[in-house]
């Protein structure tokens, strides 16, 4: 193991999260806010924090069934996130369309538009399930950086 690799491994710990609402009902967004803001769940223990700009993000959490109106905006914002990024689909809507499936105004499911790495179904998922997904996303992110596994 080179010193460069070792330094990288020591320094890279904190994936920053970015949240995209692709036409969600806000249920999943409330759960995402819960995992970040309520001390009981506290996602910042894993070095994760929500950032305001997609250019700073490492893990992107997408909620909502991707409506026709919001599709291009989601793709624009998602393309602004630098590689390597990990995409997490939160809730059943981005995964399969959920209760909005087959609607005229839905362009999802999301994996038709962009590659997804982690799914966390639920309507909405529990904060603990979201924490599990973030931890899974973190390990995938470390793999993409070549630091683990």
């Amino acid at each position: 193991m080179s010193i460069d690799h070792l330094l990288k491994k020591l320094s890279v710990r904190s994936p920053w999260l970015f949240r995209i609402n692709a036409g969600s009902c806000n249920g999943c967004d409330v759960e995402l806010a819960t995992t970040a803001c309520i001390p009981r769940y506290d996602v910042e223990r894993f070095g994760c924090r929500y950032c305001g700009s997609p250019r700073h993000a490492d893990v992107v959490l997408i909620t909502g069934p991707v409506t026709t109106k919001v599709r291009d905006r989601v793709l624009t914002v998602w393309n602004e996130i630098p590689e390597p990024k990990v995409t997490v689909a939160v809730g059943i809507c981005p995964i399969s369309g959920g209760v909005f499936r087959d609607s005229y105004s839905i362009d999802g499911p999301l994996d038709r538009l962009i590659p997804i790495d982690v799914n966390v179904p639920g309507c909405p998922p529990r904060p603990q399930a979201i924490l599990e997904a973030v931890v899974l996303a973190r390990s995938i992110w470390m793999k993409k950086l070549g630091l683990e596994g």
Binding site: I95, D111, P115, I116, D117, V118, N119, V120, P121, G122, P125, R126, Q128, A129, I130, E132, A133, L136, I140
Partner: peptide, 14 residues
């Protein structure tokens, strides 16, 4: 059983 988070390759197995 709420342990629902899974990687993309397991999507159609669940």
């Amino acid at each position: 059983d709420w342990h629902a988070a899974h990687p993309e390759e397991d999507k159609y197995v669940r």
